[in-house]
Design a protein around this nucleic acid. Structure first.
Lengths: 139, 139
DNA sequence: GCTATATAATAGTCAGGGATAGTCAAATTG
DNA sequence: CAATTTGACTATCCCTGACTATTATATAGC
């Protein structure tokens, strides 16, 4: 739907829910798990009569800008799971290809970091991910 | 099953368990002892409704063999410098391209590993490098 | 007319439940 | 004794519905 609408849709929650055959609150769940800022979406909404939800996708015409945006949104720590979510999004946005995604996941997996103290692992992972992303902006 | 399915299957854990007449948790044991990375498999899974397990067999062609050979030749530790030499060789031998080389160097640089205790850094670097190389053998 | 209040029409929150996969220590096997 | 098997317990994912919060509009009181 977002693709069809040029990167931005405005729609009522109930309409979305009936379109996907789910309860309205499911829409909130999906938005909070899938259409997050980290995944490059901006969501606004308004309650009351004439309420609505707008979902905007970040402009990803400039891969460099997109990567920089993501780098700044990554904190000092990141879990393996969250890291993989990021990497999958890079593939979706054509910032990297599948092989590169595999490399990045391999480099940031708990398996690769098994020798790092568990309480430091998420810090190291964040540093590795950011360093790899930075290297992509240099090309 | 993997042979029949072109090197990759996706199936539910319970289905696998009933097919082999064992308890579901036995599936995890077998996967962790038989379908390891070292033995040439990649496994992913997802919990919750509609959960699944996917098992992929890694490439066993000559490029894969070459990489496997290299992996076994890398010890438990590797310096940043020697790591870069390896990576440059991969480019020379067309195992990876320049972007992939940048990613690999970024992931294994001292800068990325600044949070790792210095005496552990070369171990972690070796693990990351090997893990990345292994991922390259995936179809 | 203007403000205050009630009502309707929305969206948000959260705890719980069902369906899965993961972990781990004890029991069993060979 | 090492490898395997088991099952109780845990973790995760998605879905649901009751309840709450917010906004617009209609109505009432002055």
């Amino acid at each position: 739907m977002i693709n069809d609408m040029d990167g931005c849709i405005e729609i009522q929650r109930n309409e979305l829910a009936s379109r996907f055959n789910c309860v309205p609150s499911q829409i909130n769940y999906v938005i909070s798990t899938r259409f997050t800022n980290e995944k490059g979406y901006y969501v606004e909404s308004r309650r009351g009569g004439g309420g609505y939800i707008t979902i905007r996708r970040l402009n990803t015409d400039s891969a460099g800008d997109y990567i920089m945006h993501i780098i700044t949104s990554i904190g000092d720590k990141i879990t393996q799971h969250s890291c993989e979510v990021f990497i999958n999004n890079f593939v979706d946005y054509d910032v990297i290809d599948n092989r590169e995604a595999m490399l990045m996941k391999a480099a940031t997996s708990d398996k690769a970091l098994v020798d790092v103290a568990p309480d430091k692992r998420d810090d190291v992972r964040a540093a590795i991910l950011k360093n790899m992303l930075t290297s992509l902006t240099v090309i």
